[in-house]
Design a protein around this nucleic acid. Sequence first.
DNA 1: GCAATATATAACTATATAGTTATATAGTCA
DNA 2: TGACTATATAACTATATAGTTATATATTGC
Lengths: 129, 129
Amino acid sequence: MSALNDRSLEYVAKYFKALAEPMRLKVLNALRNGEKNVGQLTEISGCTQANVSKHLSLLSQYDLVKRESRGNCVFYSIADPSIYELCELVCGQIAKRMIAEDDIKKMFIEADKLQTQNLQLIEKKLKTG
Amino acid sequence: MSALNDRSLEYVAKYFKALAEPMRLKVLNALRNGEKNVGQLTEISGCTQANVSKHLSLLSQYDLVKRESRGNCVFYSIADPSIYELCELVCGQIAKRMIAEDDIKKMFIEADKLQTQNLQLIEKKLKTG
DNA sequence: GCAATATATAACTATATAGTTATATAGTCA
DNA sequence: TGACTATATAACTATATAGTTATATATTGC
């Protein structure tokens, strides 16, 4: 990253930007346990199918996800697991600050139990069909 | 990053967003060799002083840079060098793709010689006063 | 072919923010 | 004190994009 020119910086910035949206992180997070199709991701994300498709299209464009059309469905999966390294680095840095900032600490650790339960319910539902 | 709730995802996303602007990356890149004051960063960045200040303020807010007011000037430096790990991870991923995409490859490797020379000139000028 | 389902895209709105110019604030030195 | 320099902020414009609804495009099974 020494002496990158402006075009390169723009490129790197765009890459970060792809990861700079909560909904896209949610989608990537949902793909941790393996591939899912658009309908499943729509259900998990809680927004419209059109929106999920748009985000997937962008993630695809940056090779963050792999697209595989199978039968009537399109399955997406993580293209390069090293994006999780990125996320963990970021989480680590945020964690450092959490020590000082108690409200954020709570935000992370008490992790909205309702939401977790809902997610588990959806996952379960998706597995059992 | 397993089962992060929505608020946490938003927080992580915002962190990425802080790194998702070319001008901010340029500033961070300029701080690789050590602290610089706002005037110096303004000269390197090539945009207005007001804009640099705004970006520095945001970077400060996310603890990406350290602020130290000394005399008439304010010096900024990298708060946590692990952000460069982030950038290198991203550059690494982009590099993987470069193999296939020749134009991007050129973009990175032929790194605008003029710009590099200009940067060196500015750096030199800053050092000699 | 036709109905049904799954995904992608078009068109639009609302919002966030990068950049600007002008101005305020703060420190230095005479 | 007042002139000068350095940084931050306010107010504004232009642009990008997340989200929506409605529609188009595949694919499957009858």
